[in-house]
Simulated assay, not measured.
Amino acid sequence: MAVTRELAEELPAEAVHEAKARAATLLLAFRHGNQLAFDEELDLLLAEHAEREVTTLLVWIAAEAVRKAYAPEVADRVLRALARRAPADTAAVAVDEEMAGAARLLEAVGAGDVDGVRNLVAATPDTTYLLGGLLQAVAMMLPLLPDGEAEEIAAELRRRHHGRLIQVPEARRS
Results as ranks from 00 to 15, higher is better:
R22S: 06
A23Y: 04
A23R: 02
A23E: 04
A24M: 11
T25S: 14
T25A: 14
L26F: 12
L26D: 03
L26K: 07
L28I: 11
A29L: 06
F30C: 05
F30W: 11
R31M: 05
G33R: 01
G33Y: 01
Q35N: 07
L36D: 10
F38C: 05
D39F: 07
E40V: 08
E40P: 02
E40T: 10
L42Q: 07
D43K: 00
L45W: 03
A47E: 15
R52S: 14
E53I: 03
E53R: 04
V54L: 02
V54M: 07
T55V: 13
T56E: 15
L57M: 03
L58S: 07
L58E: 13
L58C: 11
A63D: 09
A63G: 13
A63Y: 11
E64F: 09
E64T: 14
K68C: 05
K68Q: 04
A69Y: 10
A69W: 04
A69I: 10
Y70R: 06
Y70I: 02
A71K: 05
E73A: 01
A75M: 09
D76E: 09
R77V: 15
L79M: 08
L82D: 00
L82I: 10
R84M: 14
R85H: 08
R85Y: 08
A86E: 12
A86C: 11
A86Q: 09
A88P: 02
D89T: 06
V93G: 03
V93T: 13
V95S: 06
E98I: 03
E98K: 06
G101D: 07
G101N: 08
G101S: 08
R104K: 15
R104M: 00
L106R: 11
A108L: 03
G110M: 09
G112F: 04
D113I: 00
D113E: 11
V114Y: 04
D115P: 02
R118K: 13
N119T: 07
L120Y: 01
L120W: 01
A122L: 10
A122R: 06
D126G: 00
D126V: 04
T127P: 00
T128V: 01
T128Y: 00
Y129I: 03
L130P: 02
L131H: 04
G133I: 04
L134P: 01
L135Y: 12
L135K: 15
M140I: 05
M140N: 06
M141V: 05
L142Y: 10
L145Y: 13
L145Q: 12
D147E: 13
E149S: 15
A150C: 12
A150P: 02
E151Y: 09
E151N: 12
E152W: 08
E152F: 12
I153W: 07
A155G: 10
A155V: 08
E156N: 11
L157E: 15
R158N: 11
R160H: 12
H162E: 15
R164F: 15
R164Y: 15
L165K: 13
L165A: 12
I166Y: 11
I166L: 14
I166E: 15
Q167K: 12
